[in-house]
Nucleic acid binder design. Structure first.
Lengths: 239, 239
DNA sequence: CGCGTTTTTTACGTAAGCGTAAGAATCCTA
DNA sequence: TAGGATTCTTACGCTTACGTAAAAAACGCG
């Protein structure tokens, strides 16, 4: 099971691209540039048609929705297994999420035109991208249900696991304030949950950092949503 | 603005199909059967690859996720403007929602094979279906944020408006118990919200039925999520 | 028309999480 | 190493909604 060995280990290339036939893959690489995902930067704006698509090699990008009354809520997380900018080939007028870099790393970046051309020309590219998009829909659906049904502690545990799957280290760097924005809650609420997980011995934490100490334990404290989405992505990766 | 006149009025055909070139549209119709959407019936099972796609002519279908701990949560609503079964062409292993008929009516039903063949063969069919799917992603995303940020009353108002847009009459028939399943809440909580909206004079209600009395008023009590999603679908419909 | 069933309504104690804000710890820089 | 800034932690009252459950109302069938 590569699932185990993959965890917390840096990958060489974006998995979506890696799954393409060599010819197509090279073609995609030729028309892409390596792009540095800088922590906290916004690579995609709400209410704007995406100019670029990003295929993360390492690092994590969050799709975040900002409500007019102030609060922000993360609706999806994308790393090595996927891409940012599906609206390009899905053809919608404009997507409504900001894409924010949560974990620094790098990505292949491609213009919308290039991506669209390749999507249209090659059936395998298309198949691969749509399959990922379908898995992504599942992630967002699950998040919708999760946000309604599960409490802070379980959702925090889930979020940490999702990050852990997508970054190289067991340390996750970000302020609790930032985390609160992702989980759509107060900093104080997040802090409370962090302390509970720490008391349970599954994580450690200090300023700007949370580290996973006991992954299995953390999984036990997370809601089912983690495993469900994880499995869908794993399946999608099996071609 | 057809938006106004369309409200609460039965449409002649599914809008997605209606937007296709005549040739393709006829082809689709030939390979479809008229199917009766019966209230409460489940037309699609979670954890199963969809056998059929449904293009509602009238009526409403809810996509509902059931969590292992019991609660159910609606993640999306589909009517005349869209279709049920996008997983067929998106290529995922299996989607995780049940599709339940909320408002009775009829739909064109097509086998997965037929749909897939047409999706692959014709660019316009493909474009149309993907565009709808993109709008649907927006709906689910918004629902994810909404479930985190907005209270019962606003969410109930939103839900009623979504139903009202998709059924012929201002009366909406269903038990509050059913409604509770959609909103992922207790019957008692729903009841409380119903009474608040009634006290505000925007709806009336009796056993098994809620009627919209003051649409503008109801919109004012709903969260922004209603308008946001509505606008995205309206835009998508403009080709 | 009466009785059983379904649906709605009310009730009560409890818990989670909010808004607000102030205090404590940590870090950075001069 | 001191002062300022950032981040984390604690606090308090309050609101929403939960779990549970029982009473009331509406309906439908015989």
């Amino acid at each position: 099971m590569t699932q185990e060995t993959d965890r917390g280990v840096a990958r060489e290339d974006n998995a979506l691209l890696a799954a393409l036939p060599t010819r197509e893959r090279n073609d995609v690489h030729r028309s892409s540039q390596l792009f540095t995902l800088e922590f906290g930067s916004k690579i995609l704006d709400a209410h704007t048609r995406s100019q670029y698509a990003y295929f993360p090699i390492r690092g994590v990008v969050s799709l975040v929705r900002t409500l007019s009354t102030g609060p922000t809520v993360e609706v999806g997380v994308i790393g090595n297994e996927g891409m940012v900018g599906v609206d390009i080939f899905m053809g919608g007028p404009a997507q409504l999420n900001d894409a924010i870099v949560q974990g620094q790393g790098s990505a292949w970046r491609m213009t919308a035109e290039h991506l669209l051309a390749r999507f249209r020309r090659n059936g395998e590219v298309q198949r691969q991208l749509l399959r990922f998009t379908d898995a992504f829909i599942t992630q967002v659906s699950q998040t919708a249900a999760c946000n309604r049904a599960h409490d802070m502690e379980a959702r925090l545990a889930r979020w940490l696991l999702m990050m852990h799957d997508r970054v190289a280290a067991p340390q996750i760097r970000m302020t609790q304030q930032f985390l609160a924005h992702m989980l759509g809650a107060r900093t104080a609420s997040v802090n409370e949950a962090v302390q509970k997980l720490e008391a349970a011995g599954v994580i450690g934490h200090r300023r700007q950092e949370i580290s996973i100490l006991d992954r299995a334990g953390l999984e036990a404290m997370a809601c089912e949503c983690y495993g469900i989405v994880r499995r869908v992505y794993d399946q999608a990766a099996l071609n």
